[in-house]
Every structure is written in C-alpha cells, then in structure tokens.
Nucleic acid binder design. Structure first.
Lengths: 216, 216
DNA sequence: ACCTGAACACCGTTCAAGT
DNA sequence: ACCTGAACACCGTTCAAGT
C-alpha cells in the first residue's frame, strides 16, 4: 500500500472507501484500521475528519440515504406510496450494509427526513389527518425495514453453503407432530423468504387496509 | 471474582450469564471474556461448551425464542394472529437484545419454527391456501421484527440524553421549505415512534387488508 | 472431559509529538 | 490543520499443557 501524500484525504474519500470495504467484506469485517490501510495512512489520520468510528458510520448512512430518488408526482397516492417503499427497499438491496446501519446506530434525524417527507406529503395530500399520516408513515417505514432486512439476511444465508445446509437440515428434521404446518408448507415458506412478489404482497396488504379508511 | 471450582459450568449457566450481561450492558458491550470473568473462569473454559462466540449467540437466541407462549385456541383467527404478533413483540421488548440477535446471525431454523407454526396453523385453519398463508406469515413476521426493532432503538435513543438532544436539534433545524410536512407533523411523528397503539395500528392495517381476501 | 496460561493477530482510542 | 508512532486496554481464538 503506497503512502498517500498529505492533504489528499477528505471526508468524502474516507466515506467512499469505508463504503467499499463494507460492501466487499460485510459490515462486520469493517474496521477503521482497515480503511486507513486501504487509504495508505495511519489509523489516526481518520480522526482529523471523524471523531469516532460511530461518527463514520453515521456519515456512511447519510451518504447512502441521500441516494434515495424523489417521489413521482402526478400519480394516484397508492402508487406514490408504493414508489417510495420500493425505492427504499431497492437502495437497501443495492447496499446491504444499510440495513445494519439503520438498525444499529441512533439516528441524527437528517437521513430519515427525506423518506418521511415523501411518505407524509403523499398521505397528507391524499386527505389523511396528521395523526393517521404519521402512524401510517411509521408503519410503512418499519415494514420496509423489517421485510428487506429479513430478505437480505436470508439471501446471505443462501450464499453461505454451510449455513444453508444447516437450515435445510433442521427444516427437514422438524417433528411433523410438533410443527405440522411448517413441515407441510416448507416449499411455500422457502419461496416466500424474499423477492419482489413477497415484498409487494405485504405492501399491498397494508395499502388495502389503508384504502378502507380512505377519506373523501 | 472468586475462582469457580471445576464441573460447575454448564451450557445453561453460560447462556443465562451471557443473557444477563447483554441485558445489563447492551448486546454490543457483551464479550466472551466478560462472561468468563463473570463466571470466575478463564476465557477458554467456555470453548468446552461452545465452539465460538457466534455459537453462544445462537444459544441465547434459542433460549429466548423458547419463551414464546402458545397460540390461544378457541378464538376468531384475527384475534389469534394478533396474539402471536403481540407475544413476539412483548418478548422483544422484554429482551431488547433479541432484535439484534434475530437480525445479525444466520438462523438455524429451530427458533423461528414455533412462531411460524403458530401463525401458519391459524391462517390455514382460517381457510387460506398454502401460498397465501406462507406469504402472510412472512409479512406479519417481518412487520413485527421491523416495527419492534425500530421501537426499541427509538426508546434507547430517548434514554440517551446526548442522542436525544441531537435528534431534537436536527428535527427543529430542518428546513421548512425542504421538509414542510415533516416540520408540520413533528409532534405527531414524535408520538408514533412506538407504543402499543402504534404497533396495533400497523397490525390492524395488515389484518384489514387480509380480511378483504378472506376465503369462505 | 474439563480447564488453564501464554501467545497471536487483531480492535478503537488516547496522548505526545512532528510538519 | 493534518498526520505519525508508540502505547493502552481491550477483543476472539489457537495451541500446548495440565488434571
């Protein structure tokens, strides 16, 4: 690793390098010392730009959340809601570490403001009162978070042959007397661990429930 | 810490001690060396019972998931679904580390079989076809996971004065031109970050959407 | 089998110092 | 201001050895 000359470091460069490392080796394997080594500087060089490792985590999370596209205008509100939720899921799928970053660290507020603004605006324009709009936003956001995190985890598990073998093993060894339905529906369960169809199914359930309460 | 005599260690004792440490200091601060110290043994003593730290994580997760109560029989199926989802949420609230344990490590399959069996059985008895039952189970499970994880994280943030101050600050400093709806609905948003009411709101949305497709 | 003790290859972070 | 280098207090885990 060549030694980097002075004054070539920047917050953006560090965030970009950190993100690359997280996506290459997984968010767990990531370390400040690793980033520093990749940049060809000593570990302490990073402390000029970030006060701590958590600070860098926040910066990476903000960097990723800023990539969220805007809400499409001129569409029925259910389609707009769908678009926001799908965008967030897609971003998480493209950057799997985002799920962990959103779940682990306290939020500064800025990152989630964009997705909140998108959803809340759509819901308010649709005629929902403030309380219902806020409740619906939290529900939709946490659904996307949970569904996509689970999907990512399951996909990772399928890629790891050892973990996948273990899962198949225990699924097959489940007592048909203790878990009759799980055993019976094993093939269906395997097919519903992720994918666009599964995500949209849950999203449509929420939207269908919401349309019952539609104002106007 | 007194030195523990031989043959007093057991997997159960280690799991219980690990769980206590995780709940006292948070899942992040938890370490094998810490557990060993608490038990009054050397770090390597634990390796007789667990092959690795991840192995111990799995054991703690299994231990917690086994605490899930059974599904109430003799009730309308929507009430049964509600009961299962609420039980899982309650378990997560009582043991906040469970959220992280479910999200971080690959699953052996055994832990989730019980909640799956409960939900799937209820849905199949209600008359849903296998595919719909499986899809609905995944949707409900991931909703509970996402909603409760978020709730726990927000509660932790409120307890940390520094993090809470930062969040309030950025919420108040949000540009009213860039984020008009978030600024307008700030009080409502603050009230919908968790709690029984918020959880049930989302759950009822899903159930309402589901009842549209009810067979029979 | 059950457990110890030293050692290895890591961490994040502090502190004093250099430019 | 920007960065180095040594040091501190930790990690999980391996390995050889003891009982």
């Amino acid at each position: 690793m060549a030694r980097t000359p002075r004054n070539t470091l920047s917050p953006e460069l560090i965030v970009r390098t950190a993100l690359e490392l997280m996506e290459a080796k997984g968010a767990d394997a990531f370390s400040l010392r690793g980033v520093a080594a990749e940049l060809g500087v000593g570990p302490m060089a990073l402390y000029t730009y970030f006060r701590s490792k958590d600070d860098l985590y926040d910066a990476v999370r903000n960097h990723l959340m800023a990539l969220l596209p805007a809400v499409p205008s001129n569409a029925p509100w259910p389609d707009q809601v769908r678009a926001v939720c799908r965008s967030l899921r897609l971003l998480m799928l493209q950057h799997p570490c985002l799920a962990q970053l959103l779940a682990s660290r306290p939020l500064s507020g800025h990152e989630t403001a964009r997705v909140a603004e998108g959803l809340l605006g759509v819901l308010r324009n649709a005629g929902f009162d403030p309380e219902t709009a806020a409740r619906t936003h939290t529900t939709l956001f946490t659904y996307v978070l949970g569904a996509t995190s689970w999907e990512i985890q399951m996909a990772a598990e399928r890629r790891d042959p050892e973990a996948w073998r273990r899962l198949r093993m225990t699924m097959e060894s489940l007592s048909a007397r203790e878990f009759p339905t799980v055993v019976e529906l094993a093939p269906e369960l395997a097919r519903t661990t992720g994918g666009d169809e599964q995500f949209d199914y849950g999203l449509d359930l929420l939207l269908a429930g919401l349309q019952v309460r539609t104002p106007s």
